[in-house]
């Protein structure tokens, strides 16, 4: 029964997942396709004119390390990846994680699904497993796009395929953490509009916390409650070292939020 619920969930998301995957693949390719025409721009001078918070937002954490300051390619790649990848991952997480419950509730299908002989725990974990599978497929689309793009257009400044893969592992964990947080919101609110609204508010708040923490030293602690702090593609590309601590924090967030969602959902009255 669980496998049928998993397949059923994936089947119902297949179109959205397909277009998400194709979209990220094309976007990754485009980023690299535009690099040859962008390499002559004096990006470094442009970045120097920006306030620190804007540079943090534009380039991501680690933007001020020497390796990155000396590489126009890494600055370019960082600006692109930091700008759109985590935002898209957070959007996917909100949509898919909150949708595990809220979509079914909004369509009045949650009653029929939970009236089957399945526990709430198994139901939610199966739905979140479908989200994880879908996220892996979508992230793979971006990864393949970037690998092909780097091979085709990076020229004499290639980056290692291993680093591209590991950056996407980080991205996957980031998306799963966002999805699990949104699932918690869904178990509390049920209704889709409110679920997506509150989830979006949380993502925006985390992004603001991240920016504030980067530039206001007394508020640095705010950064620790933001998922964006733990997304570090530039450091991966610059040093080749996987950010294990950050990855563990993202994974732990996903696990803890999933556990909390299960506990809350187990006791939740399904009222329409």
């Amino acid at each position: 029964m669980t496998i049928h619920l998993l397949l059923h969930t994936l089947r119902h998301r297949r179109l959205a997942m397909f277009w998400f995957t194709v979209g990220l693949f094309i976007l990754a390719l485009l980023v690299m396709a535009l690099w040859p025409s962008s390499r002559d721009l004096d990006l470094d001078a442009f970045l120097e004119t920006m306030p620190e918070a804007a540079r943090a937002a534009f380039l991501g954490r680690g933007f001020d390390s020497p390796a990155i300051e000396q590489s126009a390619f890494l600055q370019y790649l960082g600006s692109q990846l930091t700008t759109w990848l985590p935002i898209l991952a957070a959007y996917f997480g909100m949509w898919a994680g909150g949708g595990t419950i809220a979509r079914a509730y909004g369509r009045h299908t949650l009653d029929a699904l939970l009236a089957q002989p399945i526990t709430r725990e198994r139901f939610l974990l199966t739905r979140l497993s479908a989200v994880a599978l879908g996220a892996a497929i979508i992230v793979a689309g971006s990864m393949v796009g970037l690998l092909l793009g780097v091979a085709a257009w990076a020229g004499d400044t290639p980056i290692a395929a291993r680093d591209i893969v590991l950056v996407h592992v980080q991205l996957l964990l980031f998306g799963l953490a966002a999805a699990a947080i949104s699932a918690v919101v869904a178990t509390v609110l049920l209704e889709p509009g409110r679920t997506y609204g509150v989830s979006a508010l949380i993502v925006v708040a985390m992004y603001v916390f991240y920016l504030v923490a980067e530039v206001v030293e007394p508020l640095e602690w705010l950064g620790y409650v933001s998922l964006f702090r733990y997304w570090r593609p530039l450091e991966q590309f610059a040093t080749g070292e996987f950010a294990w601590t950050e990855a563990v924090v993202l994974a732990a967030t996903a696990v803890v939020a999933t556990g909390l969602a299960v506990v809350l959902f187990r006791r939740r009255d399904i009222v329409t």
Binding site: H12, A115, T272
Partner: peptide
Amino acid sequence: YQPSADALY
């Protein structure tokens, strides 16, 4: 169970 509200895809 057949719910009263539409439970259809």
